[in-house]
Design a protein around this nucleic acid. Structure first.
Lengths: 334, 334
DNA sequence: CTGTTAGCGCCTTCAT
DNA sequence: ATGAAGGCGCTAACAG
């Protein structure tokens, strides 16, 4: 049973020889069986077993110009926001034999460019980028390279190529409307300092009609920073009635800090998050939030890239998936 | 300023011609400048600018047999446990020009094998696998392929190759000792159904001396399942004094459910988690947990792979990074 | 320090 | 349905 390990792994040539056919026939038997007779296919498959052949996708990709890899680029893997999108992207692509190459920009423009350059060198069949690509040089290089690009989780007048996202400004104004409708005037904002979160804040203020107390924390946000943010906000205005947060993690921190200070939520203080994290519906009180279809964004981005890879046109290269405010206990009453 | 986009992207040949040198010299100027005169380097760099050259790492990898890619395989990206390791792995590798290829097994043995096969076809310079590789066929194929493999987050008598982890049995027995020392006899376990979590449970029971009420939830665990787990456990024994959980997410859920039922933590019910999630220290009460150095595991794994890629021997191919019980408010008193 | 030669393993193109 | 030729873009291995 046990075959001694060959020093050199078997190549398609070895398989072809073992099967008594030419290399190209072996190749077709494996990647395009429709063109080969059933007899030959069986022969080749036996030869594959016998030789322990494992194809070299690098070599195949060189000639065929299809690497079957897609770059997935996020600020950091720890940004919980993007995880469902990346996970679904990876799964959807895997079903079609594509793998995701991971890149992290750390919210850093210089690294963003470096990461994109490295990715281009790897000849990916697509690039999915969380956020908008800022660097003009990178945008130009991507267009030149002709790689399909999908920017996700934001909206832009001038995407590099394709886009699946929604308007953060509109999220902000929707939240402002939400507060105004309930008569909440003393509202504070706890926000991370990333571009998208700040845009939501801008949208909020524009619709709210005036500046509001703001606590700004370094991205990525987390529970601890949420606690500090509330402390900061209450120092600015102890009578705040409502806090809008740039993530559910931050909102959770605000909630914990509120409890630590004996504030009742929502009676004394209402709280709203963003992103509908898996825990939000199950906190005490359950957390109101803004729902965005993260998995849907990942799946759509994958399908766009796959369509391009197959040479099909993409019907709708820019998709606004929208969002929805989910009212739960933390904003009840009002 | 604006150069019209070339139909064909520039190759190293184009750069060499523009610089008036041979292709191999251009190659060396870019990838091994120490071997080339400063004058030539400058020439080549100008040519790179002029042509807009972007190297093709696929082609380079084919010849040099170094793909500069490392496979990173987890059950699912949403398993919070592994994120710090994957993030640090990705960062550490990126510093050396390596990228991570993402794979997800979904806790599924069949997919585990499929994912590993796909990864091998991509000629990675290493494979970092969260957990132990179960499939004997895959283990054999990996050895044949000669790819450096690092199994992480577990310990084994027979790793495929290298390993960075710790003993889950020992974690369990340490937790049992922790409970016994405080005189807590009515202890329940809330656990996910994955292999490692179940091992911790086994270690607990062995050291505790008897079976204990157990609520078992489907992995990956989250807050909602933690709430259900406590409900389940209290139905089994309403007088439980302490709950050990297989993750901090689960423990968080147990904490929330305890509060929902008017139980005081830790006075009525003590809770301990696992993994030291970023939020654990900042909950009310702060959550006791088992600390494991996730980023450290990722960094070590990266360094092992890099060492192998450089042809250096790995001094310690199996590393037990250990763990530490972190006592916080949720287990105070007792 | 630089160049020549020769492939890496596979697949596209064209022929049969 | 199968095969032959050639080359994808780059870099080892050797020369000079």
């Amino acid at each position: 049973m046990s075959v001694p390990p060959p020093l050199k792994p078997a190549t398609l040539h070895d398989v072809a020889r073992a099967a008594g056919v030419s290399p190209i026939t072996a190749s077709r038997a494996l990647s395009n069986p429709a063109l080969v007779s059933p007899k030959t296919i069986a022969l080749v498959q036996q030869a594959v077993e016998a030789t322990g052949y494992i194809p070299n996708l690098l070599a195949g990709g060189l000639k065929s110009r299809r690497s079957r890899m897609v770059a997935g680029i996020v600020p950091a893997l720890s940004v919980a926001q993007f995880l469902p999108s990346v996970q679904t992207l990876t799964e959807t692509l895997a079903e079609e034999g594509y793998q995701v190459l991971l890149g992290q920009t750390r919210y850093d423009a210089a690294r963003e460019e470096a990461v994109l350059n490295t990715m281009i060198s790897r000849q990916p069949d697509g690039i999915v980028f969380a956020g908008l690509i800022q660097s003009e040089a990178a945008r130009e290089r991507l267009r030149r390279a002709g790689v399909p690009v999908v920017e996700i989780w934001d909206l832009s007048q001038r995407p590099v190529d394709m886009l699946v996202g929604f308007s953060h400004l509109k999220v902000g104004s929707a939240l402002a409307g939400f507060c105004l409708a309930r008569g909440w005037r003393r509202v504070g904002i706890a926000t991370a300092d990333d571009h998208r979160a700040m845009q939501r804040r801008e949208g909020f203020i524009a619709a709210f009609g005036r500046e509001v107390p703001t606590a700004c924390v370094t991205a990525p946000s987390n529970l601890e920073r949420g606690r500090r943010a509330l402390a900061d906000l209450l120092a600015q205005d102890p009578a705040l009635r409502m806090i809008c947060c740039s993530s559910d993690q931050l909102a959770h921190g605000v909630l914990v800090e509120a409890h630590a200070r004996g504030l009742r939520v929502p009676q004394d203080l209402a709280i709203c998050g963003f992103g509908n994290a898996d825990f939000s519906a199950h906190l005490l009180p359950s957390l109101s939030t803004v729902l965005v279809d993260g998995p849907g964004i990942g799946r759509l981005a994958a399908e766009m890239v796959l369509a391009r890879a197959r040479g099909e046109p993409v019907a709708q290269p820019v998709v606004d998936v929208g969002f929805r405010i989910v009212e739960r206990e933390s904003t009840a009453g009002g």
